[in-house]
Design a protein around this nucleic acid. Structure first.
Lengths: 159, 159
DNA sequence: ATTCAGCCCGAACAAAATTCGGGAGCATTG
DNA sequence: CAATGCTCCCGAATTTTGTTCGGGCTGAAT
């Protein structure tokens, strides 16, 4: 009923209005449709159709509240660099699929370089974080090596 | 009219309803208040008051659309590890404040370990990414060293 | 036992989302 | 050149949602 049904067409024709809508909604996901319409300079009905189309073609992937992790009892965050023992497509895809479902997982980055993945995770405590690494990563035969960096502070970018 | 006016009181008393609201809104930031109320098992008016309180006390920091970077003409993403040349509070704070305003910046992580910061950035092309590093990081006297890892793929976590 | 504070609810009101029919601009076509 | 079909946009009517407000319940302190 919601997400993107298309197999990712190349973003053919996004005009300035579309990009303005994306920028506004990225900054404030709860901007009312009529206020959004006024800001980007079209009628509310038009704006709604645009927004739906953007959502339908996958340009808008979803809307999310940004929640303070501490409020959910997960005050610790970490970036975990993961090096895999093999790099065939199947191993990599399987690791990714498994990773996104791990508890406390915020984001999974498949990166170029010495390490293969960087995982952004949340945890309730240092013990929980250690257990996370031991229980879910260290035991994984696809994982050769991990390095955990505690996040002192995180800030959203503006650009 | 919107953001958090309080100086961040420790999250004293969040009950199960509050946590349910946070979880639902983190998963779907556009869930109507009606539907949200039904899911967490309270009246719409109560739910609205709860949500406002959560927003007011900083537990909810904001709402944002998740936009496909490619749709905004920024198909490349990278994680840039940054090592600073000094670590006094002033230098670190200044770097953070500068970073969040850089164009294409998605998130700034202040981390423990050999590196001081990890920057998540978007760019229009490889050239633009190189220019970003050269123009904004390499020239910064506070920056001792950077290492850029291209992001092949990114996925949101579910837990 | 009474008072009081805090919380929750449900109905009334206001505001927003959504639908729908029609009109303007434009490229193709007879 | 005129006609056709297409796409996109708009604005009013309808439905859904957000929001306010007064009253009732529970539990603790007096």
């Amino acid at each position: 009923m919601s997400s993107s049904p298309n197999p990712a067409p190349p973003y053919a024709s996004l005009d300035d209005t579309d990009r303005a809508i994306l920028a506004e909604l990225a900054a404030d996901g709860r901007l009312p449709n009529n206020a959004l319409a006024e800001r980007v300079g079209v009628a509310p009905s038009t704006c709604l159709a645009r927004t739906r189309a953007l959502h339908g073609c996958g340009a808008i992937r979803g809307f999310h509240a940004e929640v303070d992790p501490a409020a959910m009892g997960l005050p610790l965050q970490a970036l975990i660099s993961v090096r895999l023992s093999a790099h065939d497509r199947a191993v990599v895809a399987a690791f990714r699929a498994r990773s996104v479902r791990l508890p406390g997982m915020v984001a999974v980055f498949h990166v170029a370089g010495a390490d293969d993945y960087v995982l952004h995770v949340r945890a309730a405590s240092a013990d929980a974080l250690r257990d996370f690494v031991l229980d879910h990563l260290a035991v994984d035969p696809a994982v050769q090596h991990t390095q955990t960096s505690l996040i002192f502070e995180q800030a959203r970018g503006l650009g």
